[in-house]
Amino acid sequence: MTIARSIIDIAIAAAEKAGARRVTRVNVIAGELRGIIPLQLTYCFGLMAENTIASGAQLGLEIVPVSGKCRRCDETFVVKEYRYICPKCQSEDVQTVSGTELRVKDIEVE
């Protein structure tokens, strides 16, 4: 709910800055590790948007998979089921490079 509220706040601020009257779509990037449940977020987003200039706006949700980079051989790979092991050299010294982001990417306005 707090996340939905923040998304709406950010979208409205960006729309007002651009002098827009209405927000029709908000595109959000969410890393898999954030544990965002799309149905739930979409529902909360709809509630939070009511009686604002984003009322009725669509929420576009792009889920980014977890990817890691091996600190030993620099290999970048998708981490499945939290197996932080480099597929190339089997090292366990792996840095998470994506999967934790949570960002409003862009908005569509009228």
Partner: peptide
């Protein structure tokens, strides 16, 4: 019209 935003959702909290 599309507007680029690229703002972290939890920025205000952070």
């Amino acid at each position: 019209m599309k507007i680029n935003v690229m703002t972290d959702v939890l920025e205000a909290n952070d």
